[in-house]
Design a protein around this nucleic acid. Sequence first.
DNA 1: TTGACGAAACTGGTATACCAGTGCGACAAT
DNA 2: ATTGTCGCACTGGTATACCAGTTTCGTCAA
Lengths: 234, 234
Amino acid sequence: MPATLSPPPAPPATANGSSSLHQHAYEEIKRLIVTGEFPPDTFLSERQLAQRLGMSKTPVHIALKRIEAEGFVAISPQQGIVVRGLSPDDILDHYELREALEGFVVRRLAARLDSVGTDALRHALASQEKALAEGDLARCLELDARFHLLLARLLGNRQILAAMDQLHDRIRLVILRVGTLHRERFEESVPEHAAIVDHLLAGDSAAAETAMLEHLEAGKRRILLRRTEPHPEP
Amino acid sequence: MPATLSPPPAPPATANGSSSLHQHAYEEIKRLIVTGEFPPDTFLSERQLAQRLGMSKTPVHIALKRIEAEGFVAISPQQGIVVRGLSPDDILDHYELREALEGFVVRRLAARLDSVGTDALRHALASQEKALAEGDLARCLELDARFHLLLARLLGNRQILAAMDQLHDRIRLVILRVGTLHRERFEESVPEHAAIVDHLLAGDSAAAETAMLEHLEAGKRRILLRRTEPHPEP
DNA sequence: TTGACGAAACTGGTATACCAGTGCGACAAT
DNA sequence: ATTGTCGCACTGGTATACCAGTTTCGTCAA
């Protein structure tokens, strides 16, 4: 599609690099979900979304089937589409999967980190500290997710990276479930990241893995403890 | 020649259990790929597939976009669809991901195995030995994949199970890459499974994980080296 | 013989129309 | 007033037609 679209009244806000409409629809709808604009239990409609995105049903339909396959929405034929929320069990399972993947990643990574990776980790850490100092919590959240993905990328395993990439959006969803972002969260997690990096640079596999597992454990605790408000859920 | 439009005999043909056409298309196309009927580098066409499956382009298109997202085909707009093969690096990455997931699974599982799980593992093992004794190699392959999925299911983590389920089809693809099934492969792997189960039943996390990692390492070696002769146990 | 050029025969991507279910509300019969 | 029923207004799912590229190949001119 040309960069200068287009007839429909709504050329979407974000300048997209999407190669196709259904790709754009996929990214946009998922963004609306993981940013909380479409909270859990929201009812969606292909036609509404198509109109909002300035395209026809077809690409929206394709995007939604993919999003359904990833578990973010539930589609009932002849009924409708509903945004799926995350149960506490989902969150626990989510963190356990991360323990398996990311614990493994840092364990392996400590033994094979090169100078390029060293620089990347130091840079990522510096960015996080800068964002925290500036109080830019949204950027803190983004950098947090990117830090974890960076570890997988440095390991160079595309399968693991792909698996963690799918987790990326779920992480946002998990964090958003507790409401707005808290500064204290990052005042704790950024130093935890720093500890992981320290052990990686020292080549200490066991210590790096332990630090990662503690970091994830702390993250899980930060989320589950805040989830004590009464929920009007069935 | 031009497609002179279809003479669709137009009964939905086989009475399928699929809830929708695109679901049926997804399962069928993926089956054709993972069974080797569509080997790597095969060129596909939405229209050809639609005619073969007795439906229109639309559900085929949706199914292919999902299969593309899973990495089994590559779609180039205005060009065509090609079945993606697995490079040696892909296979290495694949096994490394399994090491991360399944190593973690057995480590955790050894500590929390109940009587139901015990029975399920014993039963799974017996089935494998029976299939091997009968020389039913196709069933051996199926039971192999199911055994690994069973471990994840016993752990009770849906996220991990979903991640490993995606691997299920890739495993078949990996094995098919070396050609036909070899009896020796299962004469080795079934006892390896038995060893893993033994350590799980004994509650020995470390031994179970080690056995699993060795099992995966052996599987990787069997594929990459294509060796058919049994090797001495360490 | 050879080269370039253009029409045709494809490709996936998208829009539109239509279909078959579903739920709900209005209206009618009691 | 209650209740049963019909119908309309939705839903996602599918088929069809069309679009804009890309590739192929035959034709025609040099």
